[in-house]
């Protein structure tokens, strides 16, 4: 447990010191939000329709920004083989995976909240009403995404295509999670409350468990070779 804290603190310290990851993801999220607003705004949609496209836009922006960010999350470990150093300290690979997932989760969740607010303001969507519920449903969505992306980023990290490969292998797998997020947001914005009877919540929980279990089992195998 203490070692997990050490790993997390290390990532946090590096992130704060060079601010690369934060700048990257926030910058992209804000930029994409702006572009999306222009794209939607120019269609002169009425508020009801804007609310309809809002969930899709938010999650799409999330996908792009988060994928970019997670793509480089292994960079500073890879360039100097620091990962080997960590393994040599007897830290089990599962712990490394967990620390990466949690660290990535925090970063992209933070960016997601900002996107929510910014895009909501730009598009005049009343996110304030169900804000807490929106955050609540975002947690399982982003966690499933983080579990999956952290694993696949390790796969893509050593390939020739570098940054290009991760989106190509990650995005196809992310659709069920994406759809769940969009539908849940839709439900909350329409009714102001959590659509508890929807199938999406169990689906998300299943996805969370499945991807995390798969990740924790497959990550050590990836590392060892």
């Amino acid at each position: 447990m203490r070692r997990l804290a050490t790993l997390l603190r290390k990532d946090l310290r590096i992130e704060l010191r060079n601010r690369e990851g934060l700048t990257l993801i926030l910058g992209h999220a804000l930029l994409l939000s702006l572009i999306a607003s222009f794209a939607v705004g120019s269609a002169f949609l009425n508020p009801l329709s804007t609310s309809r496209v809002f969930p899709g836009l938010v999650w799409m922006i999330f996908l792009f920004a988060a994928t970019l960010c997670i793509g480089r999350s292994y960079d500073h470990e890879l360039v100097s083989s620091a990962m080997d150093g960590i393994r040599l300290c007897g830290v089990p690979a599962e712990l490394i995976y967990l620390s990466k997932v949690l660290g990535n989760f925090c970063l992209i969740f933070f960016s997601h909240v900002i996107t929510l607010i910014v895009l909501g303001v730009l598009l005049n969507v009343p996110v304030g009403m169900g804000f807490l519920q929106l955050l609540l449903v975002s947690v399982p969505v982003i966690f499933a995404y983080a579990a999956l992306a952290t694993l696949l980023a390790a796969v893509a990290a050593t390939s020739r295509l570098k940054g290009m490969l991760l989106p190509l292998i990650l995005l196809p797998l992310v659709f069920p999670i994406l759809i769940s997020g969009i539908e849940l947001f839709q439900g909350i914005l329409e009714s102001g409350a959590l659509p508890l009877d929807a199938v999406w919540i169990p689906l998300l929980l299943v996805a969370d468990v499945v991807y995390f279990v798969a990740g924790i089992n497959l990550f050590p195998i990836l590392l060892k070779d």
Partner: peptide, 29 residues
């Protein structure tokens, strides 16, 4: 498509493991 792209452009030395991992993840999905 993603699976085939990985096999085509992935890092050769680790490709076996990576391809297997992606295949399993894809099939789970």
């Amino acid at each position: 498509l993603g699976f085939n792209l990985l096999n085509e452009f992935g890092d050769e030395e680790r490709l076996g493991v990576q391809s297997a991992v992606l295949g399993i993840l894809g099939a789970i999905t």
